[in-house]
Nucleic acid binder design. Structure first.
Lengths: 142, 142
DNA sequence: ATTGCAAAGTGGGATAAAGTGGCATAAACT
DNA sequence: AGTTTATGCCACTTTATCCCACTTTGCAAT
């Protein structure tokens, strides 16, 4: 699995394309899956296999996915419907479709954050205001 | 794990480069991770594996990247976003990116301190003023 | 001590790479 | 076919990286 770290300020162009940090490109496969963070704060970008592992992880606690469990089916429907697969193009960019951008109010300026096995795309303004409310030291040491 | 000791006064150049003490270079791997001390007093520099161990040490029960515990995800996001990986170049220097320097108000003059498994980078002035407020004897014997 | 030498640390210029925007071509849709 | 949307390609700007050279420091041998 990839191990992505760091925070990068990039821009989504008029066509919805976003160039990835070169350091991420070195490690990532060409095919990626973009999806919406369930809290709807940002977008998550996975390698395809890791996206599926992530979806599955929501069923692990109660005995794995059960195809007759209506709640399981509904969860999977929502997770999968908010995802799209994309390819890194020759200039190192991916498409961030408008419908996904709308979920998390991404406009032009975004912050890309490596979060170990995947990376996140935040609207720059939202990221800044969230950061201010997070006191890491108190999270860690209280 | 490395065992770094000592205090060295170095300078960050106009391009954000910092040469490491030769004694550290002898022991360190080429790849390193620079991150912000959670107290925001200085920067920490780890070997990549030790950085990940350090991040994990903040989680008692570890669900790996599959952990859906929202607080865990947030902590990991903050820790990983404040980090960057870097390589020691041909002149024995690493990059200390501007966004990390801003967290701990590093300008030009810095103090590099070996702290066993990692080393720290302090703004020289802050290091001096902090040193004055620390009474080692009372830390040790009270 | 003094000198010589090598290593360490620092700075600057040249080169390469990354990120971004725009144009042109190709594909899809009506 | 015409309009719109998407994709690939090229070019500009900025940033990072590489390489070389100067200065200082530390060590060693005389």
């Amino acid at each position: 699995m990839v191990d992505l770290i760091g925070e990068y300020h990039h821009k989504v162009d008029a066509k919805g394309r976003l160039s990835l940090p070169a350091k991420f490109r070195k490690d990532l496969s060409k095919d990626l899956v973009v999806t919406v963070d369930p809290q709807e704060n940002c977008l998550y970008v996975f390698e395809p296999d890791d996206f599926n592992l992530w979806v599955q992880s929501f069923f692990e606690e109660d005995g794995g996915f059960n195809s007759r469990n209506q709640q399981h089916i509904a969860i999977r429907r929502e997770l999968k419907s908010r995802a799209v697969d994309t390819e890194i193009d020759g200039s190192g960019r991916i498409n961030v479709p408008a419908n996904l951008r709308r979920w998390v109010e991404i406009d032009k300026d975004v912050v890309i954050i490596g979060n170990t096995g995947y990376f996140e795309i935040w609207d720059a303004k939202r990221r800044e205001s969230t950061k201010k409310t997070v006191d890491l030291a108190s999270l860690l040491f209280s």
